[in-house]
Write a protein that binds this DNA or RNA. Structure first.
Lengths: 347, 347
DNA sequence: GCTGGCACTCTACCGCATGGAGTGCCAAAT
DNA sequence: ATTTGGCACTCCATGCGGTAGAGTGCCAGC
């Protein structure tokens, strides 16, 4: 498996790894001297130079200008994380610390905030965590409260003790007792069922039995439908954005502006995170691989988190392409597990 | 009223105004030549220089270095806004546009977001609006829903059809009917009353009658108290933070980092905004007047907004000290009025 | 296949000169 | 007494040349 034609020779691999190590550490282009000294191979700089020329031809490294050492390219990093990387597993004490930190939080929202804080705090980059969405949440109960003439407040409680309020505009006025009946009916019929299933049933029934349905029933169903139709609002929590300002390579104003605009807008970032939630496992976008221009200088490492077997969301870290992937990956991985576990316990 | 001893001579005032005009426009130190040309006074640069020396002695202007024209100091801006400023009233077409923009929004939250968007959009700086808090909101009704063994969901509806959820931890389990009784009792007793008053009454009663009170009552009151004790969560919405990155004078990374950290933290900014809500009218902090280091290079122009005679919050603009106060002030003023009016209508 | 040597290139830095902008002051003019 | 032109001075920004250092590519020799 060493130097057959299409395979990268071992020592080239070693050198690429060493070069990336160096570059990640101190951000300067790495020259043949340095590598000769530190790569472990006992070779002269001249030899190193030859191999570096090969690596450059393969597109793994490049030099910013003629006499300036080499810098990893996106493809270089890609090859590195795909085939060279050996992650350093997190020591159990750090993990324990994180677990404790998370165990202090009460609500799902607090947990998510704490997790993104942890990510950014440990990595000194930006941490991001999507809010958990329970695709298969259970309908627990619904209550309708009359507010004014034709406005009704619906309160929907789902299986995880999460609560949604919803203001409904109704066509005619409903008395408190009418509403009570409606909610009783729905609660009796659907308590404990899967939300999606509830909705499907509702839609079907509304079509089939519309004609000979008494008005109360109809109202109840319409309301329940209105409550349920709200697609769960996707959103994320981010922490440590300002950490990114410390990195020289991200620091030109134009880039920063694009980045922070994207963070505020949320749309693009959400779309990207959405791609990561599907693939089950660590996902890494390096530089322009993300396809979003504002992240051209950045990398993103994500992992989905799940509780009770169901994937609830995704979390990750955004930082400069020049990041210590071997350190970041296990952190993201561990955080995802811990968050999942913590969410499981709270239920 | 021209040149008595302590009064600043008219032409010095004219010059200060003209100098600030220039400096705000193009950010370069202003020299005597430029001023002689554009200030309107028919004087030679030499004369101008004499007067500028006076202005410098008074602390209104200073030069960044020996041969570099003059720049307004914080005190210079302060004098300018306090005594020289003539605001340009907004033309009614712009106002109408803003009104329409706001009229499209439904909820209070949307309105606030739209308002901060307007502020940042029009001024090209950062817009900030606190969420409205109804100090004298009316208690309308409360409902308690049992969730699990000793957790109860309280839903509080206030006079403006605003809804607060609150999860309560109770010592013992309460049945649905117990809770129903409790809420009936509270609703009968307090509907339509001022929230603060309700709370005061509750506290008093709880002390006086604790001993011979039946357990249901006690529960009801404890719950109501828990619901009400939550200080209304102060918060704000901000838009256009990234606009601030366009200003040269704010653009060093260190400053930006402090600024954006403060925006995320929210605490300090909230404290500052809190000072503005009390003073009724436009409030302006220039440079270090705010007392917060991260705003040393910034100014903030705020106005409280109110509906129905009650002050609900405050909104404003944050930008570089070098801002067109005469343009910004009427914008902030108008936005505050429009937001107040819009909130009034929605109720 | 590895290595030392060598010429070459490019950057970063320093010192220096120069032009321009603006000041402060003074003596003359109004 | 105020205003003005003149003048010397200061300081910044810019550009230029020279130099040191880092690193490369290539080649001939081991």
């Amino acid at each position: 498996m060493s130097d057959t034609q299409s395979e990268l020779p071992d020592r080239a691999q070693l050198m690429l790894r060493s070069l990336i190590d160096h570059y990640v550490r101190d951000g300067q282009p790495v020259g043949s001297r340095t590598l000769a000294r530190d790569a472990g191979l006992d070779l002269s700089p001249a030899t190193i130079r030859n191999v570096m020329a090969d690596l450059e031809e393969l597109g793994f490294i490049c030099s910013p200008h003629t006499s300036a050492g080499r810098v990893p390219t996106v493809q270089g990093y890609r090859f590195f994380v795909d085939t060279l990387l050996t992650v350093q597993p997190l020591d159990s004490r750090s993990i324990e610390k994180m677990r404790i930190e998370l165990s202090l939080e009460q609500s799902a929202k607090d947990l998510v905030e704490s997790a993104s804080g942890l990510l950014s705090g440990i990595t000194h980059m930006a941490g991001v965590v999507t809010l958990p969405i329970h695709e298969h949440a259970l309908f627990e109960r619904v209550e309708f409260l009359p507010l004014s003439e034709n406005r009704v407040l619906a309160v929907l409680v789902t299986g995880e003790d999460e609560v949604q309020n919803r203001m409904l505009e109704t066509e005619k006025h409903h008395s408190a007792s009418e509403l009570q009946q409606a909610s009783n009916y729905l609660n009796a019929m659907f308590a404990g069922k899967d939300l999606a299933e509830v909705r499907a049933t509702l839609l079907r029934e509304m079509q089939e039995t519309r004609s000979h349905m008494n008005s109360m029933m109809l109202t109840a169903m319409q309301m329940a439908d209105q409550v349920l139709e709200s697609k769960q609002n996707e959103d994320y929590v981010m922490a440590g954005q300002t950490n990114l300002m410390e990195f020289q390579e991200l620091c030109d104003i134009d880039n920063l502006r694009k980045l922070f605009d994207a963070f505020n807008q949320k749309r693009d970032i959400l779309q990207l995170l959405d791609q990561c939630v599907r693939s089950d496992g660590i996902q890494i976008f390096i530089g322009d691989e993300s396809g979003y221009q504002m992240l051209d200088e950045c990398s993103m490492v994500t992992a989905p988190y799940s509780a009770d077997g169901e994937v609830l969301g995704v979390l990750g870290v955004i930082g400069p392409t020049r990041m210590a992937y071997d350190r970041v990956i296990p952190i993201v991985d561990a955080t995802a597990r811990l968050l999942g576990a913590a969410l499981n316990q709270k239920e």
